[in-house]
Design a binder for these strands. Structure first.
Lengths: 218, 218
DNA sequence: AAACATATTGACTAATCTAGTCAATATGTT
DNA sequence: AACATATTGACTAGATTAGTCAATATGTTT
C-alpha cells in the first residue's frame, strides 16, 4: 500500500480523524459524499486531503481496503482464535471484539455494508469476498459448536438462531453504549453504563444456558 | 391536510411511487436529497412535484406527517388491539403488521428514524413524540404481559429481553424477505420464501414457549 | 542562519448540480 | 369549441462539486 504512504505517515490522531470523517460521509453513498464535508469534519485543509489521496475515488478505494484489512485482521482472524466449543462463549467474545472496533471506528461496519451495496465503484474482488467471509465466521462457530451440550427436544438450528438473535440484539445495545460513551463529554445525561450491560448480559447468558443446555452441562 | 390536496387527489399508484421515491432519497438526509433524483425515480416531471408540494421543504414536512400518521394508525393503534396477555403472540402479531407496512412503504421506518436524527427541520412536536410512542408500545406489551406464565427461576425482565431480541431478529429477516419478494420480478434467484419463514417461526415460537413458560402454560 | 525540502493551507475555478419557474402542451369537462 | 386544470421539461441563477496551485509554515541539513 505504498500508494498511500503520505497518509499513512501521519500521526494516529489525524489519521483516525480523517478515516472516521470519511467513512461517516461516504455512508450517504459515493456520489453524495462531499470532500468539503470530510475536510471540515476532519479539521484538515482541502489541499491536504488531495495531497494524501490524489482523488476522491482513491480515497474511497483506500477506505474500502483499509476497512477490509482491519475487519479481517482485528475481527475475523481474531475471532478464529476465540471460537470454542461453547457457542455462548464464542459469540460473546466475538461481540466484545466487535464493540472494541466500533469504538475506534464508529462507522466501519456500516461503511463496509454501504460500500458493498453502493456499486459506485467497480465491484472489487475484496468487497465481493466480504459476504462470504462474514458467513464463514458464523459457519466456523456453528461447525465447531458442540451440539451435544444442547437439550434434545429442540432442533439445534432453532436454539442457535435464538441465541444468535439475542446476542446480536445485545451487541447492538452494548456497541451503541460504547460508542456513545467514547465520544461523550460527560454531561449530566443519564445512561445505562457499559458495566451495567456486562452484568446484565451475564445473567442473560446464564438464562440461555439454563434453558437450552442439558442438565449436566449448565 | 388540505395543503396537500393536489397530491392527495392523485391515484394511489402515483402517490405510492412518489412517496417511496421521496422517502428513499431523503434517507441520505434532507440536504443531500435531490428533487431531480426523486422525480426520476417516481417517473413524474419536475414541474409536477412542485405543483403538488410547492417546495422541497414542504415535501419533506408532508412525508414526516404522512409517515407518522400511517405508523400511528396502521401500526401503533392497531397494535393496541392486538396486545394479549400472551407476550409471544403479541410480539408476533406486531411483527406481521410491521411487515405488511414495510411491503407498501419499504423505507418508512428508516425514513422516520433518519428524519428524527437529521435535525434539518425544526424539531416538530410530532417527531419528538415518536420516540415516546415507540417506547409506549413495548411498555403496553410488557405491562399487559402475564408474567405468571413464565417460569420462576429466571427474572421476567431477562425472559422478555431474550424473546424481544429473537422476535426482532426474525422480523428483520421476514421483512427483508417480504420487501425483496414484493419488488421481485421472479428471476431465477434462490430465496427462502416467505412461507418458509412463517413455518420456521412457529417452531421458534414453540421453542420459546417450551423453555420459558411454566409447565402448565405451554 | 541560510538554504533546502516537504507539509499544509485556503482562495480559486470550471464544471456540474441545485431548487424552483414558466410557457407550452396534454387531458378532461362543460 | 371553449374553458379549466394537470403535466411536461427546457431553463435559470445560485450553490456545490472535485481538484489546483501559489503562498505559507514547518522541519532538516549544511
Amino acid at each position: 500500500m505504498q500508494k498511500y504512504e503520505k497518509f499513512l505517515a501521519l500521526d494516529d490522531d489525524k489519521k483516525t480523524r480523517i478515516i472516521n470523517a470519511s467513512m461517516q460521509e461516504f455512508l450517504a453513498g459515493y456520489k453524495k459524499a462531499s470532500t468539503d464535508n470530510i475536510v471540515r469534519e476532519a479539521k484538515i485543509s482541502k489541499g491536504a486531503l488531495f495531497h494524501y489521496f490524489g482523488t476522491k475515488e482513491q480515497l474511497y478505494a483506500f477506505l474500502i481496503d483499509y476497512s477490509m484489512d482491519i475487519i479481517k485482521c482485528e475481527f475475523l482472524d481474531l475471532a478464529d482464535d476465540l471460537i470454542q466449543s461453547d457457542i455462548l462463549q464464542s459469540i460473546w467474545q466475538l461481540s466484545l471484539v466487535k464493540k472494541e472496533l466500533s469504538v475506534r471506528f464508529p462507522a466501519i461496519f456500516d461503511f463496509i455494508t454501504s460500500a458493498y451495496l453502493d456499486g459506485a465503484l467497480p465491484p472489487s474482488p475484496e468487497l465481493e469476498a466480504l459476504g462470504k467471509i462474514r458467513d464463514s465466521v458464523f459457519e466456523g462457530i456453528y461447525t465447531r459448536a458442540d451440539f451435544s451440550l444442547f437439550r434434545e427436544d429442540i432442533e439445534p438450528k432453532i436454539i442457535i438462531e435464538i441465541i444468535s438473535y439475542t446476542m446480536q440484539g445485545y451487541v447492538q445495545s452494548v456497541t451503541a453504549e460504547a460508542v456513545a460513551g467514547a465520544s461523550e463529554h460527560h454531561g449530566a445525561r443519564v445512561r445505562k453504563g457499559y458495566d451495567a450491560y456486562l452484568g446484565e448480559f451475564e445473567r442473560v447468558l446464564n438464562a440461555l444456558r439454563l434453558v437450552f443446555y442439558r442438565e449436566g452441562n449448565r
